[in-house]
Nucleic acid binder design. Structure first.
Length: 119
DNA sequence: CCCTGATTCGC
DNA sequence: GCGAATCAGG
């Protein structure tokens, strides 16, 4: 299977929407996340999370940074070591891509479960 | 241990 | 250029 314009367009679209490589690979079909990431990288993409160690924009106050901080509560709020994820949050999301996925787990095929409930 | 993406290697 | 393997981090 080669990367046609159609697939590349889908890849770029899904990737731009914040879709994870594994999700994109699954939706595209007959591709692995490695293929998607590899192609994305080759296309000049990558933008999404996990540039591993990154240099935070220092000079700005922590207040401005918290807006982009993943507000995922880690540990107990009463715990003295309580902290937030701190990873870059998605636009419009209080959490980063990973935690947003965890917080807003999309119910796939909810219809199927639904028809069972009717019975 | 799970997940993520990035980078590298071989085909 | 493609994909898998490997690396690095959360």
């Amino acid at each position: 299977m080669s990367w046609t314009e159609e697939r590349i367009g889908k890849l770029r679209e899904l990737w731009g929407q914040g879709m994870s490589a594994s999700e994109i690979a699954e939706l595209l079909g007959n591709v692995t996340r490695n293929a998607v990431i590899g192609k994305a990288h080759r296309l000049g993409l990558s933008g999404r999370p996990s540039p591993i160690k990154k240099k935070p924009t220092r000079g700005a106050t922590i207040l401005s940074l918290t807006e982009r901080m993943c507000k995922w509560p880690v540990g107990d709020p009463k715990h003295p070591d309580f902290h937030f994820c701190g990873k870059p949050a998605l636009p419009g999301m209080p959490y980063c891509a990973e935690h947003a996925a965890l917080a807003y787990q999309p119910a796939k095929k909810r219809e199927e479960e639904r028809k069972f409930s009717v019975a």
